[in-house]
Design a binder for these strands. Structure first.
Lengths: 114, 114
DNA sequence: GGAATAGTACAATACATCTTGTACTAAACA
DNA sequence: TGTTTAGTACAAGATGTATTGTACTATTCC
């Protein structure tokens, strides 16, 4: 048996998240300091809804897995599997509460200078 | 002859700075993502005046040299030698112009969560 | 000149990061 | 059941970083 074929809901694949006290401004800034990840966060912030894993076509899927893992482990995003699709979204409330003004400051500062 | 003993001003030791187009938000965020450097920047932002190289007693002087170099090459600070002392200060105007809201956002977000 | 001081240069260590390739698992679908 | 699809795991390589120790340069002061 590889999976449950009954009518009960299948348990979603588990994802690890950092404890609140392990989320630091250093980790958040480091996560945001990569061009690929900053673009991901910028796009997530615009969409306001959960986005599919591959909603941005900016790098390989192995690398997307890597960057989403970095973002998740730094406390910036949440993710959820639905069937074989994965959806991701920003932890905006947590970030605004823990580091008020940080996300808005960074996102607002993005311009032609990169 | 190793140095000029005349009354003329001695030429200050040269320091390299990045071109404007080489200063990026990625570099700035990476520079800010280290605890030692974020503390330096936070302290410089509070002082508003030029500060001596060793005004913070937080790590070895070799490491201070390293971190000030990272900050300078990322575009965050300027430095100047006076005799055998070195002074450093934030490039606040440049940063606010290139990345409006970024510095204030980051500095404002620092709290007990780090 | 010579000694003391401020800061740097360089090497070494230990470790993290970004990216790609190959191979894999899990779910959906026929 | 077998196939296809979505995403992951793992290893490898190239590269970058934080820190320390030792040795050095540049400047001041005697």
């Amino acid at each position: 048996m590889t999976h449950d074929t009954s009518t009960a809901e299948a348990a979603p694949r588990e994802l690890w998240y950092p404890e609140r006290e392990d989320i630091t401004i250093y980790g958040v800034l480091a996560a945001l300091s990569d061009p690929t990840r900053l673009e991901i966060v910028r796009a997530l912030a615009q969409h306001d809804e959960r986005c599919p894993f591959d909603f941005l076509d900016i790098t390989s899927k192995q690398n997307l897995t890597h960057h989403f893992k970095v973002l998740r482990e730094a406390g910036l995003i949440k993710a959820r599997y639905e069937g074989r699709k994965k959806f991701v979204w920003l932890r905006r409330d947590l970030l605004d509460e823990m580091f008020p003004g940080l996300l808005d400051g960074v996102l607002g500062a993005i311009n032609d200078n990169r």
